[in-house]
Computed example of a mutant assay.
Amino acid sequence: MSKERIIFCDFDGTITVNDNIVAIMKHFNPAGWEAIVEQILDKTISIRQGVGEMFALLPTSRKDEIVEYAINNAVIRDGFKEFVDYCKEQNIKLLITSGGIDFFIYPLLKPFAIPSEHIYCNASTFEGNAIEILWPNHCDEHCKTDCGMCKTSIIRSYDANQYERIIIGDSITDFEGAKLVDTIFARSHLIDMCKQLDYPYHSFETFFDIMKQLEAEPVV
């Protein structure tokens, strides 16, 4: 009996052309954010700590303009609408697994009618003086990297004996998940990481590329 296909798809830099968190930081440019990014990339601090510290640099008094900028600045990658439709037609479970934030992810995904229970991301509150990021999808007992939004925990919750697990991503937040799945669709930094460890992957620029490859590969 063939396995059920399930896709774990990143959001920032994958569904959207640009990384929305970086775009927000570049635009509002709070003092110190670039140093935090460097610490995340060289693994001096965890992703959860770094993302939390970056947003803590932004005052909640600017909430409306931050939310408006995040939503209006984002560009959806070509073929995503068709890809969502394709997954529905082929009975492929599509989960959005993102280290991004609810205040821009939910509005940007609303036109695509993806069930809210299939969207995993970080939450936020604007009740204090600075933006506070909340972490509803924390690491399980198998993950010690303090992800914030733990993609590997979500992947592990779907049995490899029952599911053909597929990841689509672009960055450091997708790399640990890529170690667990059957198929990797990669771009940008994730390609570099796959090459370093000699992991097989399919590169993509649009979601049309991904659909073409899925059609070419028989279900496991």
Rank of each mutant, 00 (worst) to 15 (best):
I7R: 04
F8V: 00
D10L: 01
I15T: 11
I15Y: 12
T16D: 06
N18Y: 10
D19W: 08
D19A: 11
I21F: 08
V22Q: 14
A23H: 06
I24H: 05
A31T: 13
G32D: 01
W33D: 14
I40N: 07
L41K: 10
T44I: 07
I45D: 09
S46Q: 05
R48M: 12
Q49W: 08
L57Q: 06
L58P: 03
T60V: 01
K63G: 01
K63F: 02
I66N: 02
I71C: 14
N72A: 07
I76C: 04
F80G: 03
F80Q: 03
K81G: 09
K88W: 03
K88M: 05
E89L: 10
Q90E: 15
N91M: 09
L95F: 15
S98R: 13
S98K: 11
F104G: 07
Y106A: 14
L108S: 11
P111S: 01
H118C: 07
H118M: 04
Y120A: 00
S124T: 14
G128S: 13
E132L: 05
I133E: 10
I133N: 05
L134G: 06
W135A: 00
N137Q: 11
C139K: 13
K144N: 14
D146A: 12
T152G: 03
R165W: 06
I167G: 00
I167E: 05
I167K: 12
G169R: 12
S171Y: 02
E176K: 14
G177S: 06
V181H: 09
I184F: 02
F185L: 02
L190F: 00
M193T: 13
M193W: 03
C194Q: 11
K195R: 07
Q196I: 14
Q196K: 15
Y199A: 03
P200C: 06
H202E: 07
S203E: 15
T206M: 04
F208H: 15
P218A: 13
V219E: 12
